[in-house]
Design a protein around this nucleic acid. Sequence first.
DNA 1: AAGTATATAGACAGGTCTGTATCATGTCAA
DNA 2: TTGACATGATACAGACCTGTCTATATACTT
Lengths: 193, 193
Amino acid sequence: MTKGTGHARQQILEVASRLFYREGFRAVGVDTIVEQSGVAKMTLYRYFPSKDDLIVAYLEQSNNKFWQWFDESISSHLDAPRDQLIALFQALGTQTITSSCHGCSFQTAAAEFPEPQHPGHRVALAHKQAVRARLYDLATKAGATSPGALADQLLLLMDGAFVAARMFNDATTTPANQVAQAAAILIQIQFPS
Amino acid sequence: MTKGTGHARQQILEVASRLFYREGFRAVGVDTIVEQSGVAKMTLYRYFPSKDDLIVAYLEQSNNKFWQWFDESISSHLDAPRDQLIALFQALGTQTITSSCHGCSFQTAAAEFPEPQHPGHRVALAHKQAVRARLYDLATKAGATSPGALADQLLLLMDGAFVAARMFNDATTTPANQVAQAAAILIQIQFPS
DNA sequence: AAGTATATAGACAGGTCTGTATCATGTCAA
DNA sequence: TTGACATGATACAGACCTGTCTATATACTT
């Protein structure tokens, strides 16, 4: 059964990811993660010296997956940054109306760890700033009139869509349906024809 | 010192509001609320039979304060619903860049209590649906081309601004600065001249 | 074959959580 | 004055939390 170095670590991280994402950080105890991972408690604490370390590891993995999704969603429009922004928010709309989408893990981290110096909050803020910078980069490359304004406006829409994904998850309709349309309008305004 | 029936209840609710809003629900224990309220533990449990009841009472009070703020922010433009929407999001921008603003308590409730049947989640969802309905009402009265679409787009911006208020609270600049501008664009599009 | 690294199993410590029980105290009305 | 009632103070129960400790088993390497 035991597959040598690293296998247990990955198993722990997968179980922790699922539980943290669906139930939150404080709501999930280390014992639950240990039990569902099928590993010993000491194994968890060997790879992750504290629960906060496990939380940070989860958030960093979540960050990596986000950027994979981000890059993939804009990969069809290389060298057309304006179309990339459009495609990004179309993909975001599709993503956030999915029933398996429960919002943004970095929003949850910021909500559960409000202290700015908490490692979970720091990682979450760094993520959002990176997204903001990436949107600014795309807006600039697209030649937007006010790339900083556009980036911030789009970031508001993105976070709003993630909030809706968590709030309206069981509702029949969700405001997230409008995120692509709203983004398209805000983008178009930046390019007076 | 004792001021008769109800004084202790209000004191408890005020302390709980401050702590819940700043630190979250699970992070704040009943003992802390009791200690900072200067009341006996049994007094708290007389007025609020469980912590969940106290959480719901806080959220309902938060809901009332939200609508007070909402109505006041649009009170200068009675019988001009389009201007009311503009004024609302100007007020929201002012609110969410204030350092004392730590986001939306209903977002936090939905994040910490993901189960839809949890009383905290139910109250939070009901609040957001009410905001959505009110925005739809204003958009309709304003004669928007697609009032449902506009209401949803504006709700996305509002929630995005509250996320930014919590995330970027200590940052020098925040995307919330752009919420009024973005709202103005989305509103204007609904009224082709 | 022996040793080293990694894993399991489970008890345990010390703290915190929600919620309950007990008894004393102060106020106000009849 | 006496009784009703809201409250204060404090201990307590039982559960859960993070993190540690010990002892044992398994696999790979040399």
